[in-house]
Design a protein around this nucleic acid. Sequence first.
DNA 1: ATAATTCCGAGTAAATAGGTAGGAATTACG
DNA 2: CGTAATTCCTACCTATTTACTCGGAATTAT
Lengths: 166, 166
Amino acid sequence: MKVSTRVHYGLRAMTELARSYRSERLLSISEIARSEDLPLAYLEQLVGELRRAGLVEGTRGVRGGYRLSRGPEAITVGDVYRILEGEVAPVDCTAEDYLPGACTRETVCMSRSIWSRVQAAILGVLDSTTLDDLLVSDALQHAAGQFIALDAVPVTHPRKGEFAHA
Amino acid sequence: MKVSTRVHYGLRAMTELARSYRSERLLSISEIARSEDLPLAYLEQLVGELRRAGLVEGTRGVRGGYRLSRGPEAITVGDVYRILEGEVAPVDCTAEDYLPGACTRETVCMSRSIWSRVQAAILGVLDSTTLDDLLVSDALQHAAGQFIALDAVPVTHPRKGEFAHA
DNA sequence: ATAATTCCGAGTAAATAGGTAGGAATTACG
DNA sequence: CGTAATTCCTACCTATTTACTCGGAATTAT
């Protein structure tokens, strides 16, 4: 259940584009690659796919580059994911294009329900989170960092239990 | 985010063992492989790992086989997952053994929060679902199938919107 | 004209997934 | 006691996928 570098890198590129969206300034692949520390040629490929899918717009030539084709609040992480990685489906039989009956064990399968639930859980997060949400939570995190610093509290990796799941 | 055949097959084997748990009867690898239609030698490997991890017990010799080492209500899907696939972590920096600072972008990363949330969502499902839960939902599904049949309602793939997520 | 950029498709090395194969150890059963 | 059924162990193999690189054409500001 690892996420591929395609999605990982692609999303990071999208967050950069989201950050610069208000300024109307174009970002070149090399700028993005530099600020996110990603392999240039590979990133170019990924952004190309995002463009063909309509999430970003490219302008060629000197001073060219990319920008989001709609606002960061109108693009979900799920959108990016599906373009670069395909449908979210832990197993084939929970995919959209699954033909009922393709798996002969369908009617006697005890494990299918768990993967459906996992799929729904993942989609719940990916489809409800926009690029803008990522910017905002990033801003909050930095504000919190500021606050702690001003308070002179020794910082002992507060990240530890931040998203406890037990 | 596909689940590997290791986990997929391994879990299916575990559901078979869960089903026969009450009867105290041992299941041989070949029986499991036959009823779940899985490659014998490969399955043997997987069950071996589950045994070394303490989830199942094996008895050798003629009439030997495997059984769960504790009840189906005391084994979660997450347990099986971690043994066969390792920790649930969409990206390295959300893993348990991640050394803070290993990723130099840590403090300026806008994408980390989403993967933490995905991880938590997945764990929420995997760790709260036991093998017994799978048996029960399976039983319910069959009971429902019975009911529809008796009512003579034309069955037009009710599965379609079963776990709608929009 | 030139330099910076997007755009495009092919190629490639390493890792991973998904197995197979062979044999030693153990044990019920005739 | 011998044999067949089984677990147990480890090495090997092969196809696919991943994560890239490379070369070059098209476009455009300066």
